[in-house]
């Protein structure tokens, strides 16, 4: 049983992963960051299947950044899966996507997203986001630690 304040980024785009990591680093966020490239692996991760059985190695994160457009399983499917599990009810999931479609926004909140953020186009804006994120989520927000 392992709870950390690690951050899990579920994102398939390497560029976005790079720029995100750079922005987080730029904002001074030092929390452990793990990246999963597709929706299925995300579900496997939370299920603790296969290699993810080791929670020391793969702990339940404090915050999940979830892209919507993902290979194998889409982001909203992953969200739905998470919210269907009682143990992950209080897990903070922030949707981070390039979609500005109001339908996506509506559906994400409907499935229990804690926040919906459109990926900003410039690096500066992304840094601003990371800073705001750190300031709000990591300094003020209180988590209900998920225990497994």
């Amino acid at each position: 049983m392992s709870t950390t304040n690690s951050i899990l980024l579920i994102e398939d785009n390497e560029d976005d992963v790079f720029l995100m990591k750079r922005a987080l680093k730029g904002a001074g966020i030092t929390n452990q960051l793990r990246v999963l490239e597709d929706g299925q692996r995300a579900i496997d991760y939370f299920s603790g299947l296969g290699e993810f059985a080791d929670r020391d190695q793969y702990p339940i994160p404090a915050i999940v950044f979830l892209d919507l457009k993902l290979p194998i399983k889409m982001g909203l499917d992953v969200l739905a899966w998470i919210r269907a599990r009682e143990e992950f009810a209080s897990l903070v999931v922030v949707v981070l996507t390039s979609s500005n479609e109001s339908s996506d926004v509506k559906r994400a909140y409907g499935l229990g997203a804690n926040s919906y953020v459109v990926k900003p186009p410039t690096a500066d804006q992304l840094l601003d986001l990371a800073k705001a994120f750190k300031w709000y989520w990591l300094e003020f927000n209180r988590f209900d630690r998920v225990t497994l």
Binding site: D15, K69, E101
Partner: peptide, 21 residues
């Protein structure tokens, strides 16, 4: 258009992001 809004903007973001970086 969905794919445009997601996929076409991603490279643009990358272009902008890397340019900025």
């Amino acid at each position: 258009s969905y794919s445009v809004s997601h996929d076409m903007r991603s490279p643009l973001r990358a272009m902008q992001g890397y340019s900025d970086a």
